[in-house]
């Protein structure tokens, strides 16, 4: 039996025939759509490496069944830049050296984009720390990550203000 799932992935509408309802969003992205930027660190919602945006909200894609997401809009790390122009969060991660091995980085960046969208942290480093605590980094680039999120947030709010 096949389950038909319609998703918009990084802006592209896709209709998928899933032969197995056990496929998680993470495994769908990595193993079937070959969007391998999203990483599997624990597969149990305990590390955050698999963070993507579903309808604009950050979630752990490892704990989500793809079949349950019919109609959803998914944004992954591959969909964040506009052409060659990196997203401000991506730029800030490079500038602040907010990464080392890079394996948790896509999840960190998607989580940071989600955090900024949520608008709860503002420019308070403590709120950023708390808000980014769902993303483990064993290399422990946390200091740079917090700086990067604060910088990106400032860049994005400047841009928004100028646009307004």
């Amino acid at each position: 039996m096949n389950w038909t799932v319609s998703l918009t992935v990084n802006g592209e509408p896709r209709t998928l025939a899933l032969d197995d309802p056990r496929v998680t969003l993470l495994d769908l992205l990595r193993e079937r759509l070959h969007l391998t930027g999203t990483k599997k660190g624990c597969d149990r919602g305990q590390c955050g490496a698999c963070t993507v945006l579903v309808d604009g909200r950050r979630i752990n894609s490892c704990l989500t069944l793809a079949v349950s997401l019919d109609g959803a809009e998914i944004t992954t790390i591959e969909g964040l830049a506009t052409g060659d122009q990196l997203h401000p969060v991506q730029e800030a991660f490079i500038a602040q050296d907010a990464l080392q091995c890079g394996f948790c980085t896509p999840g960190q960046i998607m989580s940071a984009v989600g955090l900024i969208n949520e608008g709860q942290a503002g420019s308070d480093p403590e709120r950023v720390r708390e808000g980014m605590s769902g993303n483990l980094c064993r290399c422990s680039a946390y200091v740079g990550i917090v700086e990067a999120v604060l910088d990106a947030q400032a860049t994005l709010s400047d841009t928004t203000e100028r646009a307004a």
């Binding site: 992954t76 830049a81 991660f93 990464l99």
Partner: peptide
């Protein structure tokens, strides 16, 4: 390798 790592490439 920063760009490759922040874009998922």
């Amino acid at each position: 390798d920063g760009r490759a790592k922040v874009t998922g490439a």
